[in-house]
């Protein structure tokens, strides 16, 4: 049986087909595309989550805690180089403690940066003390063990006699160093005990 399709019906069929295709393109296709995009985002997120394991987070926390501690220590050690009056006080306290006489105490000018790669400043400190040999030795040890970056440069000990008592006169020269913190370390603040960044 031959199916004779009238021209009008053929035109209606074309219009209906166009409407259906247009409806699909306008309504379904954007949603399908958006769904594909969202699923891709979810997939990428899952893979990035897999790269960050709890062990990695724990390692990061431990390292952050240790860096924070060390930065705090360095800052503390740097304080003495910037505060000559405090340094003077500590030296005098140590002299009193070990019963040595401070004959001369001369904080020097800040030296220029010795190393451009690791920026640090050095303040020269010269002092002359007098006292018993053992006391002077103990005094010098305590000076070098202050909570600072102290680098002994020179020591000259000469035996003398004061009021008939054998003493030693020590001319001690050292440098008090201050290390500048690089920019990545500037943002590391002292955290709590759990080492939170």
């Amino acid at each position: 049986m031959n199916i004779n399709i009238p021209r009008e019906l053929a035109a209606q069929a074309v219009i209906v087909l166009a409407v259906c295709i247009g409806a699909w393109i306008a309504v379904v296709k954007p949603r399908a595309a958006e769904l594909v995009q969202l699923e891709q985002t979810i997939s990428e997120s899952s893979s990035s989550l897999n790269s960050m394991s709890p062990e990695t987070v724990e390692n990061l926390q431990r390292k952050i805690a240790s860096v924070q501690k060390r930065v705090a220590q360095v800052k503390l050690h740097n304080q003495l180089a910037d505060d000559s009056s405090r340094l003077y006080g500590l030296v005098m306290d140590l002299a009193d403690e070990h019963r040595v006489q401070v004959q001369r105490l001369q904080p020097g000018l800040e030296l220029k940066k010795a190393n451009a790669e690791s920026q640090f400043a050095a303040m020269k400190l010269d002092l002359t003390v007098e006292g018993r040999y053992e006391a002077v030795a103990a005094f010098l040890e305590q000076i070098t063990n202050l909570e600072a970056f102290i680098r002994p440069v020179s020591l000259q000990i000469t035996p003398t006699t004061v009021d008939g008592t054998p003493t030693a006169t020590a001319e001690f020269g050292c440098e008090v160093l201050s290390f500048a913190l690089a920019e990545p370390l500037m943002g590391v603040k002292a955290g709590g005990a759990d080492g939170q960044p």
């Binding site: 990061l60 390292k63 952050i64 860096v67 060390r70 930065v71 360095v74 010795a114 190393n115 790669e117 690791s118 640090f120 970056f149 680098r151 160093l177 290390f179 913190l181 690089a182 920019e183 990545p184 370390l185 943002g187 590391v188 960044p197």
Partner: peptide, 19 residues
């Protein structure tokens, strides 16, 4: 940032050790 800080810290420690 932490790794950068660690790297800087390592450089600082090297300088401190050297000086």
């Amino acid at each position: 940032r932490l790794f950068a800080a660690i790297s800087a810290m390592n450089s600082l420690e090297t300088a401190i050790q050297r000086e």
